[in-house]
């Protein structure tokens, strides 16, 4: 059974239909990379999973349970699904450690000491134990994003969502974030990533989806999409992306 399953999901903002019937499933430990031109609905698709955006019709299942019903406990859903944002969204008033402990303390009811220990080990995991007491404003973009990943990981999620995690970063800082993502993938984390890092997609993804105008135009393993795309548009888009974002090896 799939860990995450989209079943004919539609979503619109006002008159504009952003998602026009998305259906796909991914298994535990899959790494799904979603690509597509801007405005194709990639971010919306991600935000529907943890209900930051509500869908109009269709169903999303997490571990076999529908999570788009009115009865769903969204706070519990979001605990189970970690999210990493394009512009980090670190809590500006808390240190790196404080960013990680907030959810542990307030959502998982850890004691102060437990939260501290857990947060420290999560920061170690992303290589930032030495920056635990720094405030977001004192960190580089790459460090901020790694704290963002640690913050999400601390909730022990079943699935991680990455919403263009490297597109707000200076080129020289992208590598350190991709390295953490790659490690996660190797540890067996289930990941749904919107990213244009073709190096990462080629080597770490189990499946790539090409999204255009709210539909999955083509979906398959990286070799298939890169070497022999079924649709002309997929090939064109991948070619453009690779020339722009292919150089980064994380």
């Amino acid at each position: 059974m799939s860990l995450l399953e989209f079943e004919d999901v539609h979503q619109s903002y006002g008159d504009e239909e952003v998602l026009r019937g998305i259906s796909f499933g991914m298994d535990r430990s899959d790494v799904e990379v979603v690509i597509g031109p801007s405005g194709s609905g990639k971010s919306t698709m991600l935000r529907c999973v943890n209900r930051l955006t509500d869908i109009d019709s269709g169903t999303i299942y997490l571990d076999g349970e529908p999570v788009t019903t009115p009865e769903t406990d969204v706070n519990d859903l979001r605990r189970r699904v970690g999210m990493v944002f394009q512009d980090f969204n670190l809590f500006a008033h808390r240190t790196a450690l404080g960013n990680v402990t907030l959810g542990l303390r307030e959502v998982l009811d850890y004691s102060k000491e437990e939260a501290r220990a857990e947060a420290t080990s999560q920061l170690e995991r992303v290589g930032l134990a030495d920056q635990a007491d720094s405030y977001p404003a004192e960190l580089s973009g790459g460090q901020k994003q790694r704290v963002g990943i640690a913050r999400a990981l601390a909730m022990d999620p079943e699935l991680m969502l990455f919403d263009e995690p490297t597109s707000a970063l200076d080129p020289e800082l992208i590598g350190e974030v991709l390295r953490v993502m790659r490690d996660l993938a190797e540890e067996g984390m289930t990941m749904l990533c919107v990213t244009h890092e073709m190096g990462f997609a080629r080597s770490a993804a189990s499946t790539i989806s090409f999204l255009d105008e709210g539909r999955v135009v083509e979906r398959g393993p990286p070799e298939q999409l890169f070497e022999a795309p079924e649709h002309e548009r997929t090939g064109e888009f991948l070619e453009r992306l690779t020339s722009l974002h292919g150089g980064q090896q994380g």
């Binding site: 943890n50 930051l52 706070n75 944002f85 907030l102 959502v107 999400a152």
Partner: peptide, 10 residues
Amino acid sequence: QLTAGRAIGL
């Protein structure tokens, strides 16, 4: 900031 807070389950 609010979105990020909600995203960890607050």
